[in-house]
């Protein structure tokens, strides 16, 4: 049996890499992918806990999370598309119109 601490550490590691991706990369689509990575890291810890706790709730919730992630990806990517049409770039540092 796999020790749950190891799986959880993997989850934490993936999550951290996702955070770094969000904050360090500039391509907005890569940032978006990093967010997906963070969601997956959380999913992994959900499954791990569900298994170790003899519960199905975590597994069911992953179902929901994946659906929400799909919806989010669809809407997010279409927003990116429409921003790209006006700004002609994917660089997040140029998406700075909403400020004082």
């Amino acid at each position: 049996m796999i020790p749950i601490e190891h799986i959880l550490l993997l989850s934490a590691l993936l999550f951290t890499i996702g955070v770094m991706g969000v904050m360090l990369r500039r391509n907005v689509i890569v940032i978006f992918m990093s967010i997906e990575l963070m969601l997956n890291a959380v999913n992994l810890s959900f499954v791990t806990f569900a298994r170790s706790m003899d519960s199905m709730t975590g597994v069911v919730f992953i179902f929901f999370i994946i659906v929400v992630a799909a919806a989010e990806a669809v809407v997010g990517l279409s927003i990116i598309l429409s921003i790209y049409r006006t700004r002609k770039t994917l660089n997040i540092e140029e998406f700075n119109l909403l400020k004082w």
Partner: peptide, 18 residues
Amino acid sequence: IYVMLNAEFVAVIQVLVY
């Protein structure tokens, strides 16, 4: 890894959907 955790369904939708 999901398969190894006996969560076959999650594994399948992970591959299919994600």
